[in-house]
Design a protein around this nucleic acid. Structure first.
Length: 853
DNA sequence: GAGCACTGC
């Protein structure tokens, strides 16, 4: 998947001149398709816009205002819920609401929730008259360009301004602070700046962690504008493949995963005086792990001259958990800035045409109702669970147009989900044509990851598809669940970004009351092995005794320990078998951003002498499907024909290798041609156009997803870089594919299966009670070899093995025997430990506050 | 012969 590195010379030069100041460890790769979600450095909010609009906005960037305004909309999207209010409002009342909310008034929460009452900061209602200048940050003298460009910027008022003095005071005096503020409060952009103004940044950087790349990049650029500095100057960001910071940087926006990687190299994180964890309420795996290790880190730095300050920022009022976890830390509340939203629940007594079970049917009925009753021009956003449902509804809505009254507008259904090709995704952001109403039918991608302008009505099915890990059988189960109350609120809020909105919920109010309050934290529903490996690198010995906000189930913890032990990454300490340490191999695994199984493949490949091939395959395994056939234009037969082209008898991993090698050849030829063209004085512009056009055609002909290809290529480079740092001797096996299959078999040996002719299914070798089917998308689904390994087991309607490779049973048998031995000991010890715990600690309810590694 | 939400290093 070699796209970058061999970049035409003309492109490299151009880049270098523009980006001298930037510190980039990523790859300078041209945007293959121009617009992408995983964009390399370009503004993520611009990324979703049409090319024309983008150009327009770029032009305006000189005076800063256009971009700022747009960011303002995107960053401070305003939400207010009139939760549960069903009353219809008259036009007059609606007008009043609109005048009252535009511009939305700053409102400060005067009441404090019960849970945080005793230690929360009382917030003054008086508007703050003496707010220090927003540009108090001294401007760097050596960069006149920055001053000229951004000097005149004055940011609009935000709700957080009112508590500014209060916050400054608390920031200076508290070791840990919890800031609760709903969307639009301005906390993500202002709190880091307040830290700088409070003088906290003198001792070290301010780190701000975000769960998504887009957020880290766009917040950094916004704050850079506000502080009158270049991106990468006083304010920078660091996400995977992209480090835009410099020695001058004081505020560093990062994804939470990056901070974790940094902690692995420098466990005390002493470069940072403050770590701000944003969006803590989302409870992402990384942010939970971070809170866990930062608490420990804080304790260790407490007595030094460089103590660590923690700020936990959350959008929901359920602060009690965080407060208890951080030793009764102070809580500051800031209100959001929002437009009101009318909530309508289904009432079965009135809405007789609704089905009790079929929410897809109800969706169509509801869209029709809304379309015929709501004012023209109000676009609709529908939340459903998956691509199949979405395409079905889109189809039915398109057909509905035939039966609408003559005066009604046209319904324009627009599907939106992550697996959709980028150019199709872009349609959701295009302006609605005259005489039509856009109905965007989306998965939960539209909940947080992307923001669509112009939405006035939300239709919420109340359902979401989530993946949960079944530790007992090591299976991922993908199932439709009810959303949480917080999630339903988030969805409704999407209707109130630009103006007052409405939300139709396709479930009764009684149903809503039964929903969980919050989303289930990721740590409770995923395989913990990779996380434990990282924590053990940091010195954790017994994960059962680690202080989590929500501790994972014992069974899940044990499953991860067993997996890591079997893979040879950790071993129990002889003196105390409930404690574990990393093995030498485990120490190497940690350096790779991979699951322990995938790291094991690389380790084995090194022994077998096929590390180059292994890196290509493992990198491709990290991306989503490279093939992007299905749903649009191309027929099933066509998709099948292209797929066959790459299929190999050895299985899907070798198929991946074939695709990557084919692509490499293509890029070699394309780059050679482009460089030759450059010598004939073709303009850079036309060269770039032809280059991108050729890539697009290649991907289209081969049904390869450009975006995933690009990501895979960058991961390949990253893995190679790490391998170099680990002094790995590079080797290639050429056409001898047996070696690479062996490496794959060893890494994935826990997933090896034997064919059962009678059942016509595969039995898991580590647990013969479980039988699985090879997914029909696999190259081996028809040939049914005797022994296979797979990448992943997925439970949908049946239990399917995904990504399958043909193996020799002798490669894995010794490993399986060893695994069974370990499991037996492990189980005996687990049983013993459980007995001991039951004796010593009868039902301890209160959570320990001291971290015990 | 099925059909897979979303992130992140």
């Amino acid at each position: 998947m070699k796209i970058n590195g061999k970049f035409p010379a003309w492109k490299k030069k151009k880049r270098k001149n523009n980006d001298e100041k930037r510190v980039k460890n990523g790859t300078n790769i041209v945007s293959i398709n121009g617009i992408s979600r995983q964009n390399g450095g370009q503004d993520p909010n611009l990324a979703m816009l049409s090319v024309k609009k983008k150009k327009r906005l770029r032009k305006k960037k000189i005076n800063g205002t256009a971009k700022i305004q747009m960011k303002e909309e995107l960053m401070n999207s305003t939400v207010q819920m009139t939760n549960g209010v069903l009353t219809k409002k008259t036009n007059m009342e609606m007008k009043q609401i609109i005048t009252a909310s535009s511009p939305p008034k700053t409102k400060i929460q005067s009441m404090t929730p019960k849970s945080v009452n005793n230690n929360s900061t009382p917030i003054s209602k008086k508007p703050n008259a003496a707010i220090p200048s927003k540009n108090a940050e001294p401007k760097p003298k050596n960069s006149p360009r920055e001053d000229a460009t951004y000097e005149k910027f004055i940011r609009p008022q935000l709700p957080i301004d009112v508590v500014e003095q209060q916050l400054m005071h608390e920031l200076a005096s508290q070791e840990t602070l919890i800031v609760i503020g709903e969307t639009g409060s301005g906390k993500s952009t202002q709190v880091p700046q307040l830290c700088v103004r409070a003088g906290i940044a003198e001792k070290g950087l301010i780190a701000v962690t975000e769960p998504r790349r887009v957020a880290a990049v766009s917040l950094a650029s916004r704050v850079a504008v506000e502080m009158g500095t270049d991106l990468g100057g006083t304010v920078g960001y660091h996400v995977r493949f992209e480090n835009v910071t410099s020695h001058r940087t004081k505020i560093e926006y990062m994804t939470d995963g990056i901070v974790l990687r940094k902690a692995l190299v420098s466990p005390l994180l002493d470069k940072y005086s403050t770590v701000i964890i944003d969006e803590a309420h989302e409870r992402s795996l990384h942010s939970d792990v971070l809170m866990c290790i930062l608490r420990k880190c804080q304790a260790q730095r407490r007595s030094t001259d460089n103590p660590l300050r923690l700020i936990i920022m959350s959008a929901t009022l359920q602060a009690d958990k965080f407060q208890a976890y951080f030793d009764n830390a102070k809580v500051v509340l800031v209100s959001g800035r929002t437009f009101p939203i009318e909530i309508h629940h289904v009432n079965p007594k009135i809405n007789k045409s609704f089905s009790a079970t079929d929410y897809v049917y109800n969706t169509v009925i509801c869209v029709k109702h809304v379309h015929l009753t709501e004012p023209k021009g109000h676009d609709i956003l529908v939340f459903l669970t998956g691509s199949e449902e979405i395409e079905a509804v889109a189809h039915q809505l398109a057909e509905l147009n035939g039966s609408l009254p003559r005066e009604a507008d046209f319904i324009l259904p627009v599907p939106l989900y992550a697996a959709l090709r980028p150019e199709k995704q872009r349609e959701a952001f295009q302006k609605t044509p005259q005489g039509a109403r856009k109905v965007i039918i989306s998965t939960n991608i539209a909940e947080t990851s992307v923001t669509i302008p112009g939405i006035r009505v939300v239709i919420d099915s109340g359902k979401v598809k989530t993946k949960r890990f079944e530790a007992s059988n090591r299976i991922d189960v993908l199932k439709v669940h009810n959303v949480s109350k917080a999630q339903a609120k988030q969805r409704a809020g999407r209707a109130g970004r630009d103006a007052p909105g409405k939300c139709y919920r396709l479930y009764t109010r009684e149903d809503f009351q039964k929903f969980d309050a919050e989303n289930m934290p990721e740590i409770l529903r995923c395989n913990l092995s990779a996380t434990f490996l990282e924590l053990m690198k940091l010195g954790m010995k017994n994960p059962h005794r680690l202080g989590w906000i929500d501790p994972p189930e014992s069974q899940n913890i044990d499953a991860a320990l067993l997996e890591l032990t079997s893979l040879g990454a950790i071993r129990p300490i002889n003196s105390d078998r409930s404690k574990f340490v990393l093995t030498e191999m485990g120490d190497v695994f940690c350096m790779y951003p991979l699951s322990p199984e995938h790291a094991r493949i690389l380790f084995q490949a090194q022994k077998e002498g096929c590390i180059m091939e292994a890196i290509k395959i493992v990198a491709a395994m990290q991306t989503d499907a490279l093939f992007s056939g299905g749903s649009d234009s191309k027929s099933d037969a066509e998709v099948e024909r292209v797929r066959r082209k790459f299929e190999t008898r050895e299985g899907d991993h070798i198929t991946l290798l074939k695709i990557v090698l084919t692509t490499n050849d293509f890029f070699d030829q394309l780059n050679a041609k482009t460089e030759a063209d450059a010598r004939y004085n073709k303009s850079n512009k036309s060269l770039e156009r032809e280059y991108n056009e050729a890539i697009r055609k290649f991907c289209n002909d081969n049904m390869i997803n450009e975006q995933h290809l690009k990501t895979g290529s960058m991961i390949e480079d990253q893995l190679k870089q790490i391998a170099i740092e680990q002094n790995v001797k590079f080797s290639t096996c050429g056409a001898d594919l047996l070696k690479i299959r062996k490496a794959i078999a060893v890494g994935l040996f826990l997933n090896s299966c034997e064919y059962d002719r009678q059942e016509d299914r595969y039995r898991l070798m580590i647990n013969p009670a479980i039988t699985v089917k090879i997914h029909p998308s696999s190259a081996l689904s028809r040939s049914k070899p005797a022994y296979i390994v797979f990448s992943e087991l997925m439970k949908t309607n049946d239990l399917y093995a995904l990504q399958v490779t043909l193996i020799d049973a002798d490669w894995v048998r010794p490993l399986i025997t060893e695994h069974k031995k370990i499991r037996k000991n492990h189980l005996a010890e687990t049983a013993q430990r459980i007995q001991q715990i039951a004796k010593v600690e009868p039902k301890t309810k209160k959570q320990k506050l001291i971290v015990t590694f």
